[in-house]
């Protein structure tokens, strides 16, 4: 095992991590501000990817595709918030889970009805295709570097939004005490719609970015949703900073675990058995991480103790 390989794997872990952050940020915002568990967040990710694939197919422009993904997911998010989610704020979490699970089924079948069951084509733009040479002689795909860049930019933007704008003040106030800010004259239902649409747009962006290197197909959002929940539980529910740290931890653990554990077992087992045992354990690694974090800090790394 060489250092180059290890550094490349760390980059892969970072890339997975920042994408998970973009996904988890919306989830944790919605939970923090509105107290809502939104299982349909993965569907918004799927909608972003499908919108991007459709627009890229029609226009050939990846930039337009990204804008379409943001727009379509934000619109779908706002619509869902107004029609369905708004009725769920006062209910307990089980009702929210049931209703948003129903939304997953509706979105999945709706997308299948509109686009068919076969995966769509969405390719990375030519100016980002192929590998670039990094210092030290590492060849790394330009597109994945761009994803890391976009993810970090989103993190920075969210930080600025939350700590330096009026909307951010309202969001933080909403997290702390929603009756009080309603009493202070903030239009709370509009705030909720905006926050939900913002989270949805981020999920859509993640879907479009990832869709270009994976397959754009119905049901693509659910595996990511599970990881995103792991991220926000590790980071502390409602905390953007926690989501960022949690996402990087999960990304690195998943990538490096899948890479290093089989090699570790290969030291004292025959290769094919080591591969099987190592990869079985690697697929548990992030859940073990979550368990350890919850034992040490039951509210997550940056969560407020209940």
């Amino acid at each position: 095992m060489s250092w180059l390989l290890l550094i490349e794997q760390v980059l892969n872990g970072l890339q997975l991590g920042v994408m998970l952050f973009v996904m988890a940020a919306g989830l944790t915002l919605v939970f923090g501000v509105m107290g809502l568990i939104n299982l349909a967040h993965g569907s918004l990710y799927m909608i972003g990817a499908f919108a991007a694939a459709a627009v890229a197919g029609a226009t050939g422009s990846f930039l337009l595709a990204l804008i379409a993904a943001l727009g379509a997911a934000a619109a779908a998010g706002a619509l869902v918030e107004i029609i369905v989610i708004r009725r769920l704020y006062g209910r307990d979490h089980l009702d929210q889970v049931l209703a948003t699970f129903a939304l997953i089924l509706i979105f999945s079948e709706g997308v299948r009805w509109a686009f068919g069951s076969f995966p769509l084509f969405l390719d990375i733009p030519s100016y980002l295709s192929g590998p670039v040479s990094l210092p030290g002689g590492i060849l790394y795909p330009a597109y994945r570097l761009a994803i890391i860049g976009i993810g970090l930019a989103v993190a920075l933007g969210l930080w600025a939004l939350i700590s330096h704008t009026r909307l951010g003040v309202q969001i933080r106030a909403g997290e702390a005490d929603r009756e009080m800010i309603a009493a202070l004259g903030v239009d709370i239902s509009k705030l909720y719609t905006v926050v939900f649409a913002l989270g949805a747009a981020l999920a859509g962006l993640a879907g479009a970015l990832v869709g270009a290197i994976q397959s754009v197909q119905v049901g693509m959002g659910e595996p990511v949703l599970i990881l995103a929940f792991v991220v926000i539980v590790i980071g502390g529910i409602g905390s953007i900073k926690g989501a960022f740290v949690g996402a990087l931890l999960v990304g690195l653990t998943d990538t490096l675990g899948g890479f290093l554990l089989p090699q570790l077992f290969a030291l004292f087992m025959e290769p094919s058995a080591a591969g099987a045992v190592g990869s079985a354990l690697a697929s548990m690694a992030i859940y073990l991480l979550m368990a350890v974090v919850l034992i040490v800090r039951p509210a997550g790394l940056y969560g407020e103790p209940a």
Binding site: Q9, N12, Q15, V210, F259, P262, P271, G275, S279, A280
Partner: peptide, 16 residues
């Protein structure tokens, strides 16, 4: 020789 997860979507680690 590598076993991946069923349903895995990112193969960056394997490609490396």
């Amino acid at each position: 020789e590598v076993f991946t997860q069923l349903g895995q979507t990112d193969y960056a680690a394997e490609i490396a």
